[in-house]
């Protein structure tokens, strides 16, 4: 790749880095929201059962 490696590798690295970070953040927040949702659903169920 010669002298141009200095320009090529940062490009590919930036692409992989940014895409991985955005991917991880999106995946992680989706999972957290899913957990939160399940937990709140359980709480509501409990509340309803108490009322009964």
């Amino acid at each position: 790749m010669g002298d141009y490696a200095l320009y090529i590798w940062p490009c590919y690295s930036a692409v992989v880095l940014i895409m991985s970070v955005l991917g991880f953040i999106s995946w992680n927040s989706k999972n957290n929201d899913q957990k939160k949702f399940t937990e709140l659903n359980r709480q509501l169920q409990e509340l309803n059962n108490q009322d009964l």
Partner: peptide, 21 residues
């Protein structure tokens, strides 16, 4: 990301209902 946003909306709804309850 859309899944996340839908879930967040549903979470807000659930919180409201729990608070009311």
């Amino acid at each position: 990301r859309i899944q996340s946003l839908i879930l967040q909306r549903q979470i807000r709804g659930l919180r409201l209902r729990i608070a009311e309850g």
